[in-house]
Design a protein around this nucleic acid. Structure first.
Length: 459
RNA sequence: GGCCCCAUCGUCUAGCGGUUAGGACACCGCCCUUUCACGGCGGUGACGGGGGUUCGAGUCCCCCUGGGGUCACCA
């Protein structure tokens, strides 16, 4: 069975790059009818926080990614201890009594000599009496010579010389195990078959392989996914705007748009751009992941988002808009409103803004729009229109449309002559949905009220 | 700096020795239209440079250049 996992350390929110690797793992498990594990890597008691874990779980929930199992490494220390002891017993790991200060000094000296800083293995075969008052760390015996070779599903064959590695620490002096050790143990114990992760982990892989071998575990397949760059092609950082996945929710993005955007970063399927969740699950294959890093680009995300908004049923939009302060549930013209608006919104936030601009009478009139709207005999035209609609029943867009047509005909003018002043009177600015739709949404009385107010204002 | 990875339009990418180098976003123009959008049609625009291999290289090899990653008692 295919088993994948996403293993974040809870030190902050879930960021966009993390979400993509999680997505890749999730999709691959799903495609194979396998299992997707979420594993919280909280072995460093100093750094991780419960809020961060909550934030990650919340983000998963928002995008709709479900996991089959959830683990916290902090609850598995007993297991790790057992394996550390096993390595100690088998002489594959050892206590190292070098203090942090001594290590720092060694590093500094090595740097001065132009060497690569690393532990010199001085306690590897230490048989004497340990120094007093030093709580030792435990190091693993890494191979002294040869190469560590593995096949990466994205990058191809990776060869790391043994000299590049040192006897890295598997347990801190306080007894807690470290990342490279526990990651390997858990991936093995949880029967993870495909490790898909950021390529910043490429160098951890040989270290983890050392652990696998020392314990006789069989290796999973590795896929190291290139990082996501910012729009300038540099490393993505907090300054590049939205890093937190939940920020996209706040900005009015639909989760399916975000996922669609992310799945196409570093992966493609011919010329296809739009992928439903179902299609992603059927088509995604980590073997097709690109070898080169890709840059984040907001306008593509916006395009995708507007696509998904356009294709959302109105009742979904009604529900989504409540997060943005627009409540349409009981509005009897919400279908007309939403149909007119969803064609032109890039985000839910914009959609909400546009809805508000129609539902509420304008607080002010845009200066430029005012100039354009108050040319010629706009007053007479608007007054004609007013007396026209005050006579009869006007409810549907077609009713209002007819009213406009009649005024146009009676005055022998173009549609624009009444369109512009009417639009500004109604919404305070140029641009926006069909006038007849707007009027049907707000109703005849409100139309009359707004036009009168406009006439008054421009007197 | 050592080691490693990467390199097609501005961006995401297709390409897997022989293509007028294709698509998408963005941008520009035209059409549709009461406006703004949507939509339709069209356009600008790329194989980083230099050597090889080959009858023939975006595709294979080497070098350069340029990006990126990594060198913790973090993960």
């Amino acid at each position: 069975m295919v088993v994948t996992r996403f293993a974040p350390s809870p030190t902050g929110y879930l960021h966009i790059g993390g979400l993509r690797t999680a997505l890749f793992n999730w999709l691959w498990a799903s495609r194979n009818g396998g299992k997707f594990i979420l594993r919280i890597e909280d072995t460093d008691l100093q750094r991780n926080s419960e809020e961060a874990t909550e934030a990650i779980l919340k983000a998963f929930k928002w995008v709709g990614m479900d996991y089959d199992e959830l683990f916290y490494q902090s609850q598995r220390f007993d297991i790790y201890k057992e394996y550390i002891q096993k390595l100690l017993d088998e002489d594959k790991a050892y206590y190292c009594y070098m203090t942090k200060e001594e290590l720092d000094a060694l590093r500094e000296e090595q740097m001065k000599r132009g060497e690569r800083p690393r532990y010199d293995r001085r306690y590897r075969d230490f048989k004497g009496t340990p120094p007093e008052g030093v709580e030792p760390v435990i190091r693993i015996k890494a191979p002294l010579e040869g190469d560590i070779v593995f096949e990466d599903g994205v990058k191809g064959t990776i060869v790391i010389k043994a000299e590049e590695l040192d006897d890295f620490i598997i347990a801190r002096s306080d007894g807690t195990p470290t990342y490279n050790f526990v990651a390997a143990i858990d991936d093995a114990l949880m029967n993870v078959t495909h490790v898909i992760r950021g390529d910043d982990h490429l160098y951890n892989t040989p270290k983890q392989i050392i652990v696998y071998r020392a314990l006789g575990f069989s290796l999973p397949k590795f896929f190291h996914v290139p990082m996501i760059l910012n729009e300038e092609g540099k490393k993505l950082s907090k300054r590049d705007g939205a890093m937190d996945v939940m920020e996209y929710k706040r900005e009015g993005y639909l989760p399916e748009a975000l996922l669609n955007f992310l799945v196409r970063l570093g992966w493609s399927h011919g010329d296809q751009e739009i992928f439903s969740l179902k299609e992603m699950k059927e088509l995604f294959d980590p073997h097709d992941i690109n070898r080169s890093p890709s840059a984040y680009n907001l306008s593509k995300l916006q395009w995708l988002n507007s696509h998904y908004i356009k294709n959302s049923p109105n009742d979904r939009l009604v529900a989504e808009l409540e997060d943005f302060g627009v409540y349409l549930e009981s509005h009897d013209r919400k279908e007309i409103l939403l149909d007119a608006l969803k064609e032109r919104a890039k985000t839910l936030k914009e959609l909400a803004q546009m809805a508000k601009e129609i539902l509420k009478e304008p607080e002010s009139y845009d200066e430029k729009a005012l100039k354009k709207a108050t040319k010629g005999d706009y007053r007479k035209i608007l007054e004609d229109f007013l007396s026209k609609i005050q006579e009869g029943e006007y409810h549907l867009p077609v009713d209002f449309h007819e009213a406009i047509e009649e005024v146009v005909k009676a005055n022998d003018i173009g549609f624009g002559k009444i369109g512009q002043p009417l639009r500004v009177a109604l919404t305070g600015k140029l641009g926006g949905p069909d006038l007849a739709d707007i009027m049907a949404v707000i109703g005849k009385d409100e139309v009359v009220k707004r036009v009168k107010r406009f006439l008054d204002y421009t007197k």
